[in-house]
């Protein structure tokens, strides 16, 4: 934790200068994971959508084209990267700091958590004018990330590899590890459909995630966007 000295001057609006605190929250692997996810999910959603609804037909001979092949290759490559990043990230849950653990559970057993959830809902409903300060994720963010990102991401990786095993065959490690999914849904068309719905869950999450990150960066008492680049959480109690 580092302390900035209060500047002993007034700003343009004549307000008192502020004391700013910053805390190191997001360690490098966490930040790296965030941006690997951002780019691979972008690639996966785009190529995945095109696999479900392909582009217009390519002219010429089949031997001269490989468009669907490239689209699928990019989908699979991005999926593999996402999966490996997820495995490393889960490792980091155990060795990283306390904030690295946050989006892998929801403390439903904690009364304080629920109280703070209510407080935050009131903040988003414009009922209170000042949000609470948090070093890590806010309680609503934690729940949303766990339910609408971490779990769907796991689901997408599992269904993704199960579907990939359809191509690599019954003797592949993908099928031995993830083939059990087809015991639950014997018709893989269902798995395709759920995989497709999973994409929309993650996309909807992303929309809310980006909106709230930008909004909180402006409105709340702490930095959000720059924190995922520098790892530092800056507290800006301008109006204290």
């Amino acid at each position: 934790m580092s302390l900035f000295d209060p500047l002993a001057t007034l700003d343009a609006h004549g307000e008192r200068a502020v004391e700013r605190q910053s805390v190191y929250v997001y360690e490098a692997p966490v930040r790296l994971w965030h941006w690997i996810n951002a780019f691979s999910i972008l690639m996966l959603a785009l190529t995945g959508y095109l696999i479900g609804s392909p582009l217009l037909s390519m002219p010429g001979e089949a031997s001269a084209n490989f468009l669907m092949g490239y689209i699928r290759f990019n989908h699979f490559a991005a999926g593999q990267i996402l999966a490996i990043a997820l495995i490393l990230r889960i490792y980091w849950v155990f060795v990283g700091n306390v904030d690295a653990r946050q989006i892998f559970y929801v403390p439903v057993w904690s009364g304080r958590f629920w109280k703070e959830c209510v407080h935050e809902v009131r903040w988003y409903a414009f009922l209170i004018s000042k949000p609470k300060k948090y070093v890590g994720h806010k309680p609503l963010a934690q729940s949303a990330m766990f339910l609408m990102f971490t779990l769907p991401l796991l689901f997408m990786v599992i269904t993704g590899f199960a579907l990939y095993s359809e191509g690599t065959g019954r003797d592949s490690w993908e099928y031995s590890l993830f083939g059990w999914l087809f015991s639950i849904w014997p018709n893989s068309q269902d798995v395709h459909t759920f995989h497709h719905l999973g994409m929309w869950v993650i996309l909807v999450f992303t929309m809310v995630h980006i909106y709230v990150a930008v909004r909180e960066d402006i409105m709340s008492r702490q930095s959000i966007i720059s924190s995922m680049i520098s790892g530092e959480r800056m507290f800006k109690d301008l109006e204290d």
């Binding site: 479900g52 609804s53 459909t193 929309w200 996309l203 929309m207």
Partner: peptide
């Protein structure tokens, strides 16, 4: 289908 549901939800959100 999955796309219609997804796009509707995304639109509402």
């Amino acid at each position: 289908n999955a796309d219609r549901i997804g796009m509707t939800v995304a639109g509402v959100i």
